[in-house]
């Protein structure tokens, strides 16, 4: 069973490659049987891996199955969701404003804009909030002298990006174009 300490110590790419070799053939066969394509199998497996990493980095996740079984089960779940989404798009009223989709697009656009102006802060913040590394690991990765320095820098970055998120959200009329 994979735990957070393993994933932070071992090479993440090597772990991903292992899962592809072990689980993807089974995923491919399942998606093929369901009438899906190789591209769909790839996309769903990518998404399943992302979700799995997010779960294990949360720290509270205790899967009752092996990694392989969990990933395969996740792909099956995502396949059903994928079919439902396709059906919703087919039934979509073109006048529907789709607030959820707009919010997603806004966040994606903000990422694009902030990559240009605040890449280092994005890197630092994602290592703490997304990868959920400890402050000690964050300070090692970014070369700070102490956890305290890294913590102060984290809040400075948050302050900087919060100002940019506000500025870019309010000042770009063509924000979602």
């Amino acid at each position: 069973m994979l735990v957070l300490e393993d994933i932070t110590q071992k090479n993440r790419s090597a772990r991903i490659a292992d899962w592809y070799e072990k689980v993807f053939p089974k995923v491919g066969a399942y998606i093929k049987r369901q009438g899906g394509s190789l591209e769909e199998a790839k996309e769903l497996f990518q998404e399943a891996l992302v979700i799995y990493f997010e779960k294990i980095s949360g720290g509270n996740f205790q899967p009752d199955k092996s990694d392989d079984a969990y990933l395969f089960g996740m792909v099956k779940h995502l396949w059903f969701k994928h079919l439902q989404t396709q059906q919703q798009w087919d039934d979509l009223d073109p006048t529907d404003t789709r607030e959820e989709l707009t919010a997603e697009l806004r966040v994606e656009k903000l990422v694009l804009l902030l990559k240009q102006s605040g890449q280092r802060c994005l890197e630092l913040l994602q290592s703490f909030y997304y990868e959920r590394l400890s402050m000690q690991k964050v300070s090692e990765r970014f070369g700070y002298k102490s956890e305290r320095s890294a913590t102060v820098q984290k809040y400075k970055c948050l302050e900087k990006l919060r100002a940019e998120v506000k500025d870019k959200s309010l000042n770009y009329e063509d924000f979602l174009d």
Binding site: S13, I16, L49, Q126, Y129, Y130, L161, R162
Partner: peptide, 27 residues
């Protein structure tokens, strides 16, 4: 705005992880 910033950071982290996964897949 801070809540929105966490959402942006999360999306950035996701995009980075997905890029890494795609690079492995491509290989």
């Amino acid at each position: 705005w801070q809540t929105q910033t966490y959402a942006v950071v999360r999306e950035y982290g996701r995009q980075k992880l997905k890029e890494e996964i795609k690079a492995v897949e491509n290989q």
